[in-house]
């Protein structure tokens, strides 16, 4: 009796083992297949992209340092004028930062409204939650350049089209992130305020915002950092600021490379500076929350 039971356990152990090995092998097979497909996609992708490019990868690879070398050597020759050039493009830098800052501020307000109106439990009109979510999805999906180019056609070049374009995208992107935070907010203060007869905006301002403020500020800082890059890029398609000056300086070609170098330096330093600044503040905010 006991013997039979013992042999049946042994049976099932070896069963389990063979099952397990089989499963492991199947997993390995699937994993290997996935890897193979991935590698094929990467190789085929690079091949296609290379085919459709004006110059090939291998022909271009050894020239990669030529342009930076030209720019740097010319900038080094004219290094005496560099401070003057940096000063000359400083207003453009301020404009780029201003575009990023204003669009972040506008985007934060837009995102705030979209998130509060699109979060369950907080929304003013609960039936319209899907509508506000779709609005923020679409605003997030539009690349800045689309709105910027269309607005440049109507409003003419300058910082305003870039500002509007970035603000719209920022509002959509922050709307989603804010709403994820707001979903986890404690509803008790809101209910408490509601019992005193507070209006919707009072409930949000006094009940929800203090809870979510550290996260919101942290996300906004991250957005500001992203927006500086975006505003520089949009400048390149004609929306003012440092990117616009860069395009002009590049159009002049050799002989004016020192100007391009000055812009490169300003842009690089600005991005690194705000990067460090925002990551320091964000760390402080999230640490403060953890304690």
């Amino acid at each position: 009796m006991a013997d039979i039971a013992f042999s049946s356990t042994q049976q099932s152990v070896s069963d389990i083992q063979s099952h397990y090995m089989e499963m492991v092998q199947r997993r390995r097979l699937y994993g290997g297949l996935m890897l193979l497909i991935f590698v094929v996609m990467m190789v085929a992708g690079f091949y296609t992209v290379n085919e459709r490019n004006a110059g090939g990868f291998w022909e271009g690879l050894h020239q990669i340092g030529d342009y930076p070398a030209d720019v740097l050597s010319e900038a080094w020759e004219n290094r005496a004028e560099m401070p003057a050039l940096l000063l000359k493009y400083f207003p453009a830098l301020i404009e780029t930062i201003n575009i990023a800052a204003v669009s972040t501020i506008l985007g934060v307000f837009g995102g705030l409204y979209l998130s509060l109106l699109g979060t369950r439990g907080l929304a003013k009109w609960p039936r319209l939650i899907p509508l506000f979510r779709r609005i923020s999805d679409i605003m997030r999906a539009v690349p800045e350049i689309v709105i910027a180019l269309v607005l440049i056609f109507v409003l003419g070049g300058g910082p305003v089209p870039a500002m509007i374009a970035i603000a719209i995208h920022t509002a959509g992107a922050l709307g989603k992130m804010f709403s994820e935070v707001a979903e986890n907010a404690d509803l008790k203060p809101v209910e408490g305020l509601a019992s005193t007869g507070a209006t919707w905006s009072q409930r949000m301002l006094l009940g929800v915002l203090p809870q979510v403020a550290p996260n919101y500020i942290s996300y906004s800082l991250l957005r500001f950092e992203i927006n500086i890059r975006a505003s520089a890029i949009l400048g390149f398609v004609g929306a003012g600021g440092l990117g616009y000056e860069l395009r002009n300086a590049m159009a002049w070609g050799p002989g004016r490379f020192d100007e391009a170098a000055a812009i490169f330096i300003l842009l690089f330093c600005t991005i690194v500076f705000f990067d460090q600044l925002s990551s320091r503040y964000r760390n402080r905010l999230t640490e403060g929350q953890a304690q």
């Binding site: 992209v49 459709r52 490019n53 004006a54 342009y67 890059r229 890029i233 390149f236 860069l246 690089f268």
Partner: peptide, 19 residues
């Protein structure tokens, strides 16, 4: 250095295009 500057620099070496 940011994508903008990389694009500008790389376009000099590889020409315009998706690569």
């Amino acid at each position: 250095v940011d994508a903008l500057i990389w694009t500008v620099v790389l376009a000099r070496a590889f020409g315009p295009g998706p690569l």
